[in-house]
């Protein structure tokens, strides 16, 4: 038990170390990141998740507005729905929702892709061709998620706030201009920015966990399935841990 735990930590640190080396250092030593693969990963992880992120954010915006109204109308402060929706979405819910959707879609896909390549000796084949599998497989995914998770988070901010806005002006009878003014006054650049930093970190966490679980595959199809499942569970867990860390950091230092 202690032995396997130590080995897991060693494997994980090797993957983290190699991923950062092949993504950020080796391009300056004449081994560039594969641009076409990066773009295709961006399309798969980012562009293709736009509909699901949009729909979920829209509904969460509505839900937030309703839940806020339930409490705020008792004290006659219904207009503060705008503050609550805006701040909680940008600071917290958009990044975490996006990260959960992306770990379900892309994190699992990374683990399954790398895992089945490992099972079919394709990873070994890359090594014998003198191609580093981390550079070939993980770096494009890392760059794609570092760009696309914050981008999706921004989208989620906008659509979630519009959801809250639509509900407030239709059901809660708040005047559209008042809602708009209230939102603008409540939101600070800092709120949006800390959300995006979180999203960026979540992108890294999801890629590393997916790659780690994928490279752990030794056997066949059954293990690929098991590793894919644990990549989703582990990345959601780690996303929450990192969220806690960043939220504490921002609470005390901004």
């Amino acid at each position: 038990m202690a032995f396997t735990l130590r080995k897991d930590i060693a494997d994980a640190s090797r993957i983290i170390n190699n991923t950062f080396y092949w993504t950020f250092i080796s391009p300056f030593r004449g081994k560039p990141v594969r641009v076409r693969a990066t773009v295709s990963e961006m399309v798969k992880a980012g562009y293709n998740s736009v509909p699901i992120v949009a729909v979920i954010s829209f509904f969460v915006g509505i839900i937030l507005a309703l839940q806020a109204a339930y409490q705020l109308k008792r004290v006659g402060a219904l207009i503060y729905v705008a503050n609550l929706v805006g701040v909680s979405l940008t600071r917290e819910l958009s990044p975490i929702l996006t990260a959960i959707i992306v770990s379900g879609r892309s994190g699992s896909a990374f683990a399954a892709e790398i895992g089945s390549m490992k099972a079919a000796e394709e990873v070994d084949a890359l090594v014998t061709m003198g191609i580093n599998p981390i550079r070939f497989l993980v770096s494009p995914k890392l760059i794609a998620l570092m760009v696309m998770v914050p981008a999706l988070t921004m989208l989620s901010d906008v659509i979630g706030i519009s959801g809250g806005f639509l509900l407030s002006v239709s059901v809660l009878d708040i005047h559209p201009y008042n809602y708009y003014q209230q939102s603008i006054n409540a939101l600070l650049v800092k709120d949006v920015f800390t959300g995006l930093i979180k999203a960026w970190a979540f992108g890294i966490v999801i890629t590393i966990v997916g790659a780690y679980q994928g490279f752990k595959v030794e056997g066949g199809a059954e293990e690929v399935g098991r590793r894919t499942t644990s990549s989703v569970v582990a990345s959601i867990f780690l996303v929450i841990i990192f969220d806690l860390f960043f939220t504490m950091l921002f609470y005390y230092f901004t």
């Binding site: 390549m117 079919a120 084949a125 090594v127 014998t128 061709m129 003198g130």
Partner: peptide, 18 residues
């Protein structure tokens, strides 16, 4: 990698990238 550049390997399942 320079040594590997001068060897070729055929794996059991061919291991082509799908």
């Amino acid at each position: 990698d320079t040594v590997r550049g001068r060897m070729g390997v055929l794996f059991q399942g061919a291991a082509l990238l799908n």
